[in-house]
Design a protein around this nucleic acid. Sequence first.
DNA 1: ATAAATAAATGAGCATACTCATTTTATGAA
DNA 2: TTCATAAAATGAGTATGCTCATTTATTTAT
Lengths: 220, 220
Amino acid sequence: MKTTRAKPKDEKKPSGKRDRNKEKTKQQILAAALELFRKHGLEGTTTKQISQKSKIAEGTLFNYFKTKEDLALYFFQKETSDLIKWFAKEERLQKAPLPEKLFAIIHRQLEYITPYEDFIGAVFFRSLQAHSKLSPLSLESQELRLKYLRFVRDVLQQAEENEEIPRVGEMGAYAVGLFYVGIVMHWLHDGSEGKQKTLALLDRSLNLATKVLKKGGWDW
Amino acid sequence: MKTTRAKPKDEKKPSGKRDRNKEKTKQQILAAALELFRKHGLEGTTTKQISQKSKIAEGTLFNYFKTKEDLALYFFQKETSDLIKWFAKEERLQKAPLPEKLFAIIHRQLEYITPYEDFIGAVFFRSLQAHSKLSPLSLESQELRLKYLRFVRDVLQQAEENEEIPRVGEMGAYAVGLFYVGIVMHWLHDGSEGKQKTLALLDRSLNLATKVLKKGGWDW
DNA sequence: ATAAATAAATGAGCATACTCATTTTATGAA
DNA sequence: TTCATAAAATGAGTATGCTCATTTATTTAT
């Protein structure tokens, strides 16, 4: 095996063009879809438009993504993984007190989704639902949630170790996640300039929660 | 005006048959839809099936409900109004301490949705999203949310007046609503016999929350 | 009772998410 | 280079949610 001519750039696998094309096509689709979703929202974007903009046949789209929602879900996958990467680099933030950390994290998430407001309104809540066999989102969205919860749990664990807060364990991460859902809900309704109201709410509630936690009584 | 013959049963408006038929048809549709949603879920039920079962033409369905989701939303409208009626009759419960009240309320909600689990999985979260102009849910679901929040606020207000808890105001209702969302999320994932785990979680968290609230530090 | 006006029902037709049998393209072997 | 095989692209076809011009049923006026 691996007999014939040597290729200019060495590659682990004898294949090449195929994989490269595949990846390129996938990226084309994602770029086109995100652009269209941002401009016209989820329902306002047809798979035909996406495939045209990606310069592929309509059928091809479904070789890459099982459903249009799957495609939309990719946005949240990227959002989550970008968030985690970003946080890993923010050294100053790592040492900040917990409420500041959480504020920065959620604030960044809100900034990230800002250009996609309409789209988010239509998809965010669906991205939460898992299981229901009929929904094609099930498995992937499940994984996504877990990834996010793990990230939050790590942040909280650090605060536990620093004795900033008592033990909150898994449930703490779950609570923060739910809190985030509530914040996004508020954010979607928030008509104030620059969504100030949501940011104020975010700040107040995080401080309150931390104060309450510090005060103890968390005999879970 | 109002000249001609007198009708046997006096009616405010001269009309009659039309309104009665309309109401009957609406009820037929709702009954058929709920039955099918329960059996086959939301996606598993076609509008054709619903109209056949309702003995109407497919187009007629859309004279009564703008979209299939609208039809699904009716379930939650009924759930909420049934809940409110139920609570109004539960005199013993009215006098119970807050955590017990909230437990009973949420527990009843969970029991109500139990036969529709698959369906709920697909629709519950969508019913939360408002606004997004594209979603036909917007207005009605908004109203529904407000109705529920008002109900919870009243329950909390009573607890405030009895000095069971400090003032929590609007935000308290919002928090309970969000908590309910979290519970439903947990419930959907809960594979334990009779959803015991969710019920245990419900109990524990309500007690904890009340304890924390009583301890004070709620300088919102 | 009859006709005019209005409301409701109808179903053919449309748009679109998605499928699948067929065609095209890339790969490895001879 | 040539062929056989496997992967990927294709687009006509399908199912379904929903629209709308037309038909049918009910009410009001004469």
